[in-house]
Amino acid sequence: MLETELVDVINLISDIRHGKVYTSYDVAIHTEQLIEKLISEGQWNTAEDLMVLIKARINRIMSALPQESTPVNIMRHILKIIRELYDTGFKYKSEGQQSLHHLITSNVDNAEDYSKPLPSLRSSLLDHLAEYKTGLELSTDNIATQALEHIHADEIILTVGKSNTVEKFLKHAAEKRKFQVIVVEAAPLYHGHEMAINLTKSNIQTTVIPDSAVFAMMSRVNKVIIGTHTVMANGGLRAACGVHMVALAAKRYSVPIMVLAHMYKLSPLHLCYEQDAFNICASPADVLPYSSGPIINKVHVYNPVFDYVPPDLVTLFISHQGGNAPSYVYRLLSELYDPNDNEI
């Protein structure tokens, strides 16, 4: 598709690169608005047309920002919604959860033809989208309301770096319960400091520790609660740099790790479509400042942004629907996405 037709996506990509849209939540909202605009004002007649448009956009984003899974996940989910609405519009497939047997035995219906025009598609899509949007906006609060089930009095919770979701989660629990929080600094950006300041504003007793002290403190910790950037299809995480180390320490001391994951963070891909694109290295200036002199020319300095955490280290995923084990992620994926859309 021509670049001129993908202007909206290009603008979104540009905003993300410029840092105007930074948190996952903002990206999600912007993506949703983009899709809404596309559906309501775009040039399409059949479901097929619309899906082609969306797939083009997915490709464009993946080629520019392979690590940004949020917009791609949302668009995939929209594709699934389109298929569902189309199906309910024309056929009468059983709604509700498909059984495991059905999932395995149902072959990919390649000959699904989405090209019949369905006049009510546009409006029902927009309705669904509005619902989805509300779901998105309330996602953080929904997760936060589950806090009381997981955090008990006098517990010591460990968290890494800064996450808005975790912050709300802990603040919600702090209204009713008294507990302590240990925040890991998360070098080299030290976002943990901000997190600690925000937590103390809600009168939560907070301690900040450097990354090197995690193993030493882990024996006293009751739970680890973290956010993540993406949840991979096997239940593993693409999280901020340093989380893998915390997960290993927790495993060693049998401390449960709870990951707060929104639905739009679940990706159907295993380790990204091209292995080398899994991680980005940011500027080495955070690790070794440019003023360090001639040593800069003699060493290679890597500053990776993400960490891969294998699924066996994670105990529980908490989403707005409740808690799930990592081994259950495949089920969640099947509800969110259509298997035909995984390879675009």
């Binding site: 400042p289 440019y290 003023s291 360090s292 002199g293 001639p294 800069i296 020319n297």
Partner: peptide, 10 residues
Amino acid sequence: LQEAGVGQKG
């Protein structure tokens, strides 16, 4: 201006 040590190739 940027700080850069002596002898640095930059």
